[in-house]
């Protein structure tokens, strides 16, 4: 699993309604977030790479998706250090993992959060 389900349940315990709402927001908007990073990497825009990766990192943190969060952090650091070489490949790897994460979240039974 690409997210820690125990931590996620603890994070949203008693607030399944809130979890379902922000999960829906995330599923709807994740591709836009990934595309922002991809565009930044393609255009060697280090500043935008840093900002867009930072944004995604924060969201992944809320969903307790540590491994992908680390990948987003690496991209954020690359942007901060003005190193864009290799950023596109990393972003494509991130995108694959993101799709997998979304599938897992869609199938996740959140009833234990009640």
């Amino acid at each position: 699993m690409l997210f820690n389900d125990k931590n996620l349940v603890a994070m949203f315990h008693g607030d399944e309604d809130i979890f379902l709402e922000i999960k829906a927001d995330f599923i709807r908007t994740y591709q836009e977030m990934v595309d922002r990073i991809k565009d930044a990497a393609k255009h060697n825009d280090a500043d935008e790479l840093q900002i867009s990766a930072h944004t995604l990192k924060g969201v992944l943190s809320t969903f307790c998706a540590e491994p992908i969060k680390e990948l987003a952090f690496e991209l954020e650091t690359m942007g901060k250090e003005k190193v864009t070489s290799g950023a596109l490949e990393k972003t494509l790897a991130l995108e694959v993992q993101m799709k997998q994460l979304i599938k897992e979240l869609e199938n996740f039974d959140s009833s234990s959060m009640k």
Partner: peptide, 15 residues
């Protein structure tokens, strides 16, 4: 500026 986390906090606090 994190839309997801701010929503988590705002909905949780309002509740």
């Amino acid at each position: 500026d994190d839309i997801i986390y701010s929503k988590y906090m705002s909905l949780g606090l309002e509740k």
